[in-house]
Computed example of a mutant assay.
Amino acid sequence: MPSPLIDPDELRERLPAVTVLDVRYRLGARNGRARYAADTSRAAYVDLDSDLADPPGAGGRHPLPSPDRFVAAMSTAGVRNDRPVVVYDDWSSLAAGRAWWLLRHYGHRDVRVLDGAWRGWLAAGGETETGEPSRPPGDFSGSPGSMPVVDADQVRAAGVLIDVRAPERFRGEVEPVDPVAGHIPGAVNVPLTVNLDEAGRFRDPGELADTYAEAGAARGAEVTAYCGSGVTATQAVLALELAGVRAALYPGSWSGWITDPDRPVATGDV
């Protein structure tokens, strides 16, 4: 497998030969397509809510999309089975991480996240254009199963369980999104802020390995990551892959966990 990251200079050199997906998204702000239409980089826009997730429900706020939904969205965006894909966003590679993870989950073998995201592209002098470029539909035909996944019945027995949310949400001191505060019992908190440097690029793999090893997520460990709705934890899965650790995702995450009132909830640091 290629590296899960690509830097702006390499992307610029490879642009004619790759499919680029713009996954710009902000929690609570549904204007990613408007920002895309204003300045793109030969990319096809992919909407997180409608293309990379099913409607909210028992699976949480962003359940994994049905195979029909996801395959159709990727084909519309021009994704091909035999053509490399690069994904980017303007949200610290959180939404792009979801697209990367799903494409990998569906068996695409060459998909990478733009390191530094959209601001990194601009800082490196990457070209932009306006409007939506026309492109032929792709032939993407993958099926899920290539990335490790756990469900609500498996998550508490999943070895090292990492909650990637902010520490105050993990402790249950605040909860700005979901109706219940706290975390899954047994989880350890490794917030997403540890993954990137000040420029928004992923930290050195050795540094990441040391950071996650302190939480028990060392090479060879059974590791699962979760967040609020199964989106931002994919950035941690990518960081762990850089560190040499293969991690599972709990897609329902906190918002799915709390849909069953019988499931236990922990607060505080443990």
Results as ranks from 00 to 15, higher is better:
residue 27 L to D: 02
residue 27 L to A: 12
residue 27 L to K: 06
residue 27 L to Q: 10
residue 28 G to V: 07
residue 28 G to C: 07
residue 28 G to N: 07
residue 30 R to K: 13
residue 30 R to Y: 12
residue 30 R to E: 13
residue 31 N to G: 13
residue 32 G to Q: 08
residue 33 R to L: 09
residue 34 A to V: 13
residue 34 A to Q: 14
residue 35 R to S: 10
residue 36 Y to T: 00
residue 36 Y to G: 00
residue 37 A to K: 10
residue 37 A to N: 03
residue 38 A to I: 00
residue 39 D to A: 15
residue 39 D to C: 07
residue 40 T to N: 14
residue 40 T to A: 14
residue 42 R to F: 10
residue 43 A to W: 03
residue 43 A to Y: 06
residue 44 A to S: 14
residue 45 Y to V: 04
residue 45 Y to E: 05
residue 46 V to I: 14
residue 49 D to V: 06
residue 49 D to K: 03
residue 51 D to R: 01
residue 51 D to N: 06
residue 51 D to Y: 02
residue 52 L to G: 04
residue 52 L to H: 04
residue 54 D to A: 15
residue 55 P to L: 11
residue 56 P to I: 04
residue 56 P to K: 02
residue 57 G to D: 08
residue 60 G to Q: 00
residue 60 G to E: 01
residue 60 G to A: 04
residue 60 G to K: 00
residue 61 R to C: 01
residue 62 H to E: 09
residue 63 P to I: 04
residue 64 L to K: 06
residue 65 P to G: 11
residue 68 D to M: 08
residue 69 R to W: 03
residue 69 R to V: 02
residue 69 R to K: 10
residue 70 F to W: 07
residue 73 A to C: 08
residue 73 A to D: 04
residue 74 M to C: 09
residue 74 M to H: 02
residue 74 M to W: 02
residue 74 M to L: 08
residue 75 S to T: 15
residue 76 T to G: 07
residue 77 A to D: 05
residue 78 G to K: 03
residue 79 V to C: 10
residue 79 V to A: 11
residue 79 V to Y: 08
residue 80 R to V: 05
residue 82 D to Y: 00
residue 82 D to H: 06
residue 83 R to D: 00
residue 83 R to M: 07
residue 84 P to W: 03
residue 85 V to F: 00
residue 86 V to S: 08
residue 87 V to W: 01
residue 88 Y to M: 10
residue 88 Y to A: 11
residue 88 Y to V: 09
residue 89 D to H: 11
residue 89 D to L: 12
residue 89 D to F: 12
residue 90 D to K: 08
residue 92 S to W: 13
residue 92 S to M: 13
residue 92 S to I: 08
residue 92 S to P: 00
residue 93 S to A: 15
residue 93 S to N: 15
residue 94 L to A: 13
residue 95 A to C: 04
residue 96 A to K: 02
residue 96 A to P: 01
residue 97 G to Y: 02
residue 98 R to F: 05
residue 99 A to N: 01
residue 99 A to Q: 01
residue 100 W to E: 01
residue 100 W to N: 05
residue 101 W to C: 07
residue 101 W to P: 07
residue 101 W to S: 09
residue 102 L to F: 07
residue 104 R to H: 13
residue 104 R to W: 03
residue 104 R to G: 15
residue 105 H to A: 13
residue 105 H to I: 06
residue 107 G to Y: 08
residue 107 G to S: 09
residue 109 R to G: 14
residue 109 R to D: 14
residue 109 R to H: 11
residue 109 R to V: 07
residue 112 R to T: 06
residue 112 R to K: 10
residue 116 G to R: 09
residue 119 R to E: 13
residue 120 G to T: 07
residue 121 W to L: 04
residue 121 W to H: 05
residue 122 L to R: 15
residue 124 A to L: 04
residue 124 A to C: 04
residue 126 G to E: 10
residue 126 G to F: 09
residue 127 E to R: 14
residue 128 T to I: 12
residue 129 E to Q: 14
residue 130 T to V: 11
residue 131 G to T: 05
residue 131 G to K: 07
residue 132 E to Q: 13
residue 133 P to S: 10
